[in-house]
Amino acid sequence: MNLLCASTALTLAAATAQAATLNITDVTATWSSWTDGSDVTSADNAGTAELRWGTTSEAQSGYDFDPLAPSGPHAQDTDFKIGTFTHHNFPIGAGSGISSATLDVSFTFYLGADPGTSYTRTSQFVFDHFETPNNDDPCANTLPNNDPSNTGGCSDRVTPTTNPATSETFTITDGTGSTFTYVFDVEGFDIGDSFWTLEGQSNTADLLARFTYEENIAPVPLPAAAWFLIAGLGGLAAAGRRRRS
């Protein structure tokens, strides 16, 4: 799934010199869209973004996102949590599950010791959802039905995919006019490529971010061919100067 907003440059003026911390003051989230599913509802339950689906006389399956705010101060070069995603897997009618859902997360932060100057960033995530038939054998995860990984029926799979371009740079200026550039990364959910949730149970993952001083990021080395090209261009330029002289 792709986070739909591209990397942008964000200039933050009038912040403290070389802000070594970041404070999150507010996080909000909403399930903005989904595909397929029956009896689908989206709601804000005391700040938790809830999505529910499925034809059933008991509990519906669903997603939650619990924002974490306020939080901080967060030190640079250290992962910190923005919120927690939860998948609730319950038995529902065949064909009544969703196939994907979109989550919008906005958070407001300030740098260093300057709470009077705050900034807001919004990220979007899409979750691909595989609502498996509970009676399949083997199950979609290739293991037998009622294997420990398929207790009570076949487990369901959730695959979060985030935008590969989630970094933003921002520059702060101190009282002497010196500027310092930081890189802010929303790193995505800490579940790898996907996870499987047992029937009748729940599974969670945290949304992580970090920020770092730009000079601490190692440069990407040029391939050897590029160095040969640069050397060749330099040689051509020198030869041209000799001919002109």
Rank of each mutant, 00 (worst) to 15 (best):
P223W: 04
S32H: 01
A226S: 15
L51R: 04
L111K: 00
I24K: 05
R121N: 10
F127S: 07
K81W: 09
H87K: 14
A17Y: 05
A13Y: 03
T56L: 02
F130Y: 12
F180H: 11
I217Q: 01
T86E: 12
N141H: 06
G188I: 00
D79P: 07
S7I: 00
S106D: 01
P148F: 09
M1A: 15
T56P: 02
S99G: 13
A205H: 06
G112Y: 03
M1R: 10
Q201K: 13
L51W: 08
Q201C: 00
R242D: 06
F125H: 15
A6S: 12
A20L: 02
F80P: 01
S245M: 06
R157W: 03
S96F: 05
Q76K: 14
A205P: 09
G47N: 04
S202K: 09
F228S: 15
T204K: 10
S7K: 01
D128T: 12
E199G: 06
G192K: 06
V126Y: 08
S96W: 02
S178D: 13
P67I: 12
T11K: 00
D77M: 00
V27P: 01
D190S: 08
T176P: 05
G188W: 06
S167C: 04
A6P: 12
L222I: 12
G112V: 04
F90Q: 15
P160F: 08
G54H: 05
I82M: 15
I92T: 12
A224S: 14
G62D: 02
G62L: 01
G62V: 07
R52P: 05
A43G: 09
E215S: 14
D156L: 02
W31I: 04
L10A: 08
L68S: 12
P219S: 01
T151M: 07
D64E: 15
A101L: 11
E50F: 03
G72R: 07
A43I: 02
P67N: 05
G83L: 07
D128G: 14
R244F: 12
T16A: 08
G83H: 03
W227C: 06
G234W: 01
A46I: 06
A49D: 08
F127G: 02
G62K: 01
T204S: 15
Q76G: 07
N145H: 02
G192S: 04
V220C: 07
L222Q: 11
L207I: 09
R52M: 05
P160G: 07
F228Y: 14
G95Y: 05
A46Q: 14
A165H: 14
R241S: 10
T8G: 13
T48F: 03
T16W: 05
E131G: 13
W31F: 15
R157D: 09
A19L: 08
T197R: 08
T21F: 06
W196Q: 01
Q18D: 11
I172L: 09
F80Y: 13
F125I: 10
S245A: 14
T8Y: 06
V220Q: 11
L103K: 03
T161W: 10
N146W: 05
N45S: 13
N163Y: 08
T169Q: 10
S167D: 15
N216E: 10
G93I: 07
R241H: 02
I172V: 15
T25N: 06
S106C: 07
M1N: 11
N141Q: 05
R121K: 08
R210D: 14
L10D: 09
W31Y: 11
I191S: 12
A29E: 05
S99T: 15
N135K: 02
